[in-house]
């Protein structure tokens, strides 16, 4: 029997450059990558090598100069701004180094934000928020706490809950442990690993930390200057 499930991510001959003053910086040059569904990929590279750019392209936040990006069978080039926004809402969950939580809203309210776009009752939203926060490992008594009342690790758990609350198949993580100490960082990485293994989320994690990459099932090193070279995960 032939498996007809398309790859989770197909990056085909993608190029991207930026202008920095008079200088042109080529961050991606005919880059090609395929990520299978339910994979946990660590994109490793030093700062400025284009890994965040790659993540933004995968999330449809930026457009490539050349090449194609196909996510779960959808060619992003075919989507206009409005369709892309709706597609992003149901397909992707973003996790950032700086959490980006709204400081005056409780953890639960922060997690509820993506659900406000869906036709759900208040009770259903509440149920999903509690489930996501519990899954992310935030103690129930802290669900009503504001981000400033939580530790860095707990704030990142809230951000992860926010990313998974709509149950998207793909999580894009940009240095998710970059602002955490080793213990808290390991807990977050273990959580991501759990989400990958138990909930079968496809995860692409950008990191410059080799230790973080050990939690992934596949590691891809991007050399500075860029041409993608695939190496087996360590």
């Amino acid at each position: 029997m032939i498996d007809s499930t398309p790859p989770a991510i197909q990056i085909i001959e993608v190029s991207k450059h930026y202008r920095r003053g008079d200088e042109t910086v080529q961050v991606l040059d005919r880059f090609t990558l395929t990520v299978e569904p339910e994979a946990f990929v660590a994109l490793m590279a030093p700062s400025g090598s284009g890994k965040s750019t790659l993540l933004n392209l995968m999330g449809g936040l930026d457009r490539p100069d050349a090449g194609r990006i196909v996510i779960a069978g959808t060619d992003l080039a075919t989507l206009n701004e409005a369709t892309l926004t709706r597609w992003r809402a149901r397909t992707l969950g973003f996790i950032f180094q700086l959490y980006y939580l709204i400081p005056v809203l409780s953890a639960a309210r922060n997690v509820e934000l993506p659900l406000l776009l869906l036709p759900l009752s208040r009770e259903e939203r509440h149920r999903r928020v509690e489930a996501a926060l519990t899954l992310a490992g935030l103690p129930p008594e802290r669900h009503r706490f504001r981000p400033t009342e939580l530790s860095g690790g707990q704030q990142q758990r809230v951000a992860i809950a926010r990313a998974i609350v709509t149950d998207p198949p793909l999580l894009l993580c940009d240095e998710p442990t970059g602002d955490l100490d080793r213990t808290a960082g390991d807990e977050i990485l273990a959580l991501l690993k759990t989400l990958n293994e138990r909930l079968r989320k496809t995860i692409v994690m950008v990191t410059h930390d080799p230790h973080a990459a050990t939690f992934a099932t596949r590691r891809i090193d991007l050399d500075k200057g860029l041409v993608g070279e695939l190496r087996p995960a360590s």
């Binding site: 701004e81 926004t85 709706r86 992003r88 809402a89 992707l92 973003f94 709204i102």
Partner: peptide, 14 residues
């Protein structure tokens, strides 16, 4: 601006 950008990543249209 950072939070608005994150709302955009969550599917909030302009």
């Amino acid at each position: 601006s950072g939070e608005i950008a994150v709302l955009h990543t969550q599917g909030y249209s302009r």
